[in-house]
Nucleic acid binder design. Structure first.
Lengths: 332, 332
DNA sequence: GACAGGTTCTGGAACGGTCCAAAGAGGGGC
DNA sequence: GCCCCTCTTTGGACCGTTCCAGAACCTGTC
């Protein structure tokens, strides 16, 4: 019971395999009755083209690899969604690989993707080995999505605009009347950008010396500890802007434990609009990173490069939006 | 700058392509110095075998498709982790497809995987079209992981033991001294199993008529509303066992809003041990579904079937464990 | 009826591997 | 020196497509 091949279809339809190939690829140089016969035969046999054979012959796989660094990171999903929607209309498949899973198994996480000869690569989140990426980029289009890092030449980059996001948050808090505002900073390029923008915005409003920055490790625990320190100060801030939602949840716990009511006594804001922030129990004010738009744009860049290879690496920053929920209010 | 082929390696090493193939597939029928020469040539050229060509020739892809129904469902990740670890040692790759993403784009979500001629299929979570699955199962090994549904013949099934999990929770609560216990039920096969087991355990402890069941929709909102109803009753339960963590978070909000302290006034328990349950702010007592073990077992089943095709579909239930955290205590 | 020019169709050579039958090399026994 | 046997190595068929050059078939013109 082998799967039917293009030859089986040809035989059944009484034509050559070349004609079948022509029909299936939508050529208009075929007489309608032959086309019908071929399509009917294909349908009756349940024919599915063999992707391996096609890839071998066409020298491309119509598949792009997506390298995630951790499937647990929930905001990737929106990005994948956007990515997929556009790739699909381009007739391309997505092949997911989790770098964390593969790294544990040894080897470069991109290896399986490269062995399968993907036509392009989307690296989501922090990139693995920058040197290795450069070598890959020389062979195929590569887009870095959802991260801000120095990239090898010729690599496109798409991410949320962290500076704008941090500005939105800070101005929201200032607009509510807060003056003494703290930032729970993170690390990495993203953490840096958010912190800088927070500081710049405070400065722009003449609040430079009311700004406080505590550095955490982007975990709930870190957010908790940093907030305990912050809120125990004599001149405690009336608002806390956390580098991400999870840190913000830590801040929330800390405030609660110190007997402060959110948002009455202290406002807190997260970043990323994760599902956690949408729990009505927490209902965090946060920033939506426009993951879907980031994904779409990454796909766009990739499709562009398939058509016109080469050229400089481009950078696109998607505009984030502020999600005002229940953890921010004017100071008491 | 084409990628080097096996012929390039052969030429550089001064041997035939057959010998290169032999060496690369680890044959021991090769003189050591030739082996060395081949490996050196391959290394120098940066040769990577072309997966498409190999698949075509071998008539197998060394790839198994994993069909998820929603990447957002966090407990899949542990399962994938377990799956991947075992598949990897078998020299197999994992190809992820999100049914939700693909369904939106039209067509059967498994189509892309079938076109790529995966050697086997793991369906994670609720299965798509059961009829279609039967047709697939006739052609390749199929395992359903993490769901309890009637499956076509010859399909293996692996899942957490929901009956045991629900029993663990119920006995934990009874052991703490609770008597009037409510269950926030869900739907589907899993919801059914958990509810039935809750009822059976209550009955086994002579508490049949102290058991209350409210049916929700497995969302936070549903959990919230059902809990408000429950806790407003004159004979309100002292413990609530929710069908999943997210429902449990809704229950937590409801209790808090009604001025009841958890776990002092009311204990609540979730199910799934999701990352949400581990937030120290919530710190839910819950059930760990042994996702990693489920994944490993699914891989085991698949590998078995590659070696010995055919035979009855098997069922394996992984033993869940109770994660006792901060939301359960003896009744006041 | 031959011919030109267009439209349809076909055979066969890729693509890059695997695998098998058979050739070649080397060694031992007579 | 020849034969036989084992261990290595090789050529070539094959996997299922695409694609190109050219064959076959029309249709209309002179």
């Amino acid at each position: 019971m082998r799967a039917p091949t293009i030859r089986d279809v040809a035989e059944r339809a009484g034509v050559s395999k070349s004609l079948v190939s022509l029909v299936l690829r939508g050529s208009d140089q075929v007489r309608p009755e032959k086309r019908e016969a071929v399509l009917r035969a294909a349908r009756e046999l349940g024919y599915r083209p063999n992707a391996a054979a096609r890839s071998l012959s066409e020298q491309r796989t119509r598949t792009v690899g997506v390298l995630l660094n951790d499937l647990r990171n929930p905001w990737f999903v929106d990005l994948l969604d956007g990515l997929n929607s556009l790739l699909h209309t381009g007739g391309l498949h997505m092949l997911l690989a989790d770098a964390r899973l593969n790294r544990r198994a040894g080897q470069d996480p991109a290896d399986p993707l490269l062995d399968l000869r993907v036509d392009g690569l989307v690296v989501v989140g922090t990139l693995p080995d920058p040197a290795a990426l450069g070598a890959v980029a020389a062979r195929m289009p590569v887009v870095l999505a959802g991260a801000r890092e120095p990239v090898p030449p010729g690599v496109d980059q798409v991410a949320g605009d962290d500076e704008q996001g941090a500005r939105l948050v800070t101005e929201h808090l200032i607009g509510l009347g807060h003056r003494r505002i703290a930032h729970l900073a993170g690390y990495g390029a993203v953490g840096e950008l958010r912190r800088r923008s927070f500081e710049a915005t405070m400065r722009a409003h003449g609040l430079a010396e009311r700004a406080v920055v505590e550095t955490g490790d982007m975990t709930e625990e870190g957010g908790y500890r940093a907030t305990v320190r912050l809120l125990s100060r004599p001149d405690r801030p009336t608002a806390v802007f956390a580098v991400n939602d999870i840190t913000c949840v830590g801040a929330l716990s800390a405030a609660e434990e110190l007997g402060l009511r959110v948002p009455h006594d202290v406002s807190v804001v997260g970043y990323d609009n994760t599902s956690v922030s949408r729990l009505r129990h927490l209902w965090l004010t946060t920033v939506d990173n426009a993951g879907h738009e980031v994904g779409r744009r990454a796909a766009r860049f990739l499709l562009d490069r398939f058509e016109r290879p080469g050229g400089e690496g481009r950078l696109h920053l998607a505009a984030p939006t502020l999600e005002i929920r229940g953890t921010t209010a004017p100071p008491a």
